[in-house]
Design a protein around this nucleic acid. Structure first.
Length: 305
DNA sequence: GAATTATGCCCAT
DNA sequence: TGGGCCTAATTCC
């Protein structure tokens, strides 16, 4: 259930520990045997996130494209560079996994004693990327395929801008603002449309709209350009924070001590997401939950107009 | 212990 | 519109 920040962290972990290495690529589950064979034994030259998609480029130019979908995750084993203060020696990134892993930000947790390296695959491992020292297992993805360079470029071209994968934030923002304000579709749906802006999921959608005090039902065309720009700028801030922190925290009002609490208690992290019926933290009005395009939308009808 | 739910998105009908 | 992916935490008996 990852949003963009998680995929960027996965790309960072892969960049730290597997990029530049010659990898054994396999499909313990078997479903990806042909794709794995195409890139087995090659050097991984880059790992990049664009929105919620991961692109791993190998020396031949072939690209492994991965989308985690609803419950995909990467499990990492062996030698790993800590991405969080305190570090960790084994972990999962993607859907929450506690079996042998950490939630990012919960601090260090060792590999169970007696576990050998490389570890036996746990569950249905679609693809394993392995160096001598590090193993990354992909489980439960909704997309996992090998593309040629043109195919990879086309996949990226279909995505809207991602503030964490552009070198021109202002120009990327222009694209997002234009796409958001050009259609009559509700802004709450447009923010989830990965061709408008990439990486936003249901939590960031709800929180961005609350922080902008914007009614999710407002048609994109009725969203003032400067408000659309605020959404882009705020998305860039929240995404960068999520990448560093390892989880989504949008309550900039929290004091430092309360932020520590929010590390352990996910119910403290958001203004409206998953707070249906609870009082809005600003107005006291019960937070509303409703369906919008088959997803749950949380919002405050008093604050968001 | 069973049923439900979830940070997503694709496809078939 | 419904099922699929193939998972684990949470909620409901």
């Amino acid at each position: 259930m990852p949003e963009g920040h998680t995929v960027h962290r996965i790309a960072r972990q892969l960049t730290q520990d597997l990029v530049g290495r010659r990898l054994a690529v396999s499909s313990p589950q078997g479903r990806f045997a042909a794709g794995a064979a195409r890139i087995d034994g090659q050097v991984l030259v880059a790992a990049d996130a664009v929105g919620k998609q991961l692109f791993c480029t190998f020396e031949s130019g072939d690209v492994l494209r991965v989308h985690l979908g609803l419950y995909g995750a990467w499990d990492f084993y062996g030698s790993l560079t800590p991405l969080v203060q305190g570090g960790y020696s084994a972990g999962s990134m993607g859907a929450p996994r506690l079996r042998r892993a950490v939630r990012m930000g919960e601090g260090e947790r060792d590999v169970p004693v007696g576990e050998v390296f490389p570890p036996e695959p746990v569950g249905q491992v679609r693809v394993r990327l392995a160096s001598d020292a590090t193993v990354a297992d992909l489980r439960g993805p909704s997309a996992c395929e090998v593309l040629d360079p043109a195919g990879a470029a086309a996949a990226i071209e279909r995505l809207g801008p991602d503030p964490a994968s552009t070198d021109d934030l202002a120009a990327a923002g222009d694209v997002m603002v234009h796409r958001l304000t050009s259609r009559n579709v509700a802004v709450g749906q447009l923010l989830m449309d990965q061709t408008v802006v990439a990486g936003i999921g249901n939590i960031y959608r709800a929180e961005l709209l609350f922080r902008a005090r914007l009614d999710p039902h407002t048609p994109g065309r009725r969203v003032p350009t400067d408000v659309a720009r605020v959404l882009w700028d705020d998305w860039a801030v929240l995404l960068a924070d999520g990448i560093e922190r390892g989880f989504i925290l949008t309550r900039e009002d929290l004091a430092e001590a309360q932020r520590e609490e929010a590390v352990a208690d996910s119910t403290l992290r958001h203004w409206v997401y998953h707070r249906a019926g609870e009082p809005c933290l600003v107005s006291g009005t019960p937070v509303v939950v409703e369906d919008m395009a088959t997803r749950k939308l949380y919002w405050c009808p008093t604050c968001q107009v």
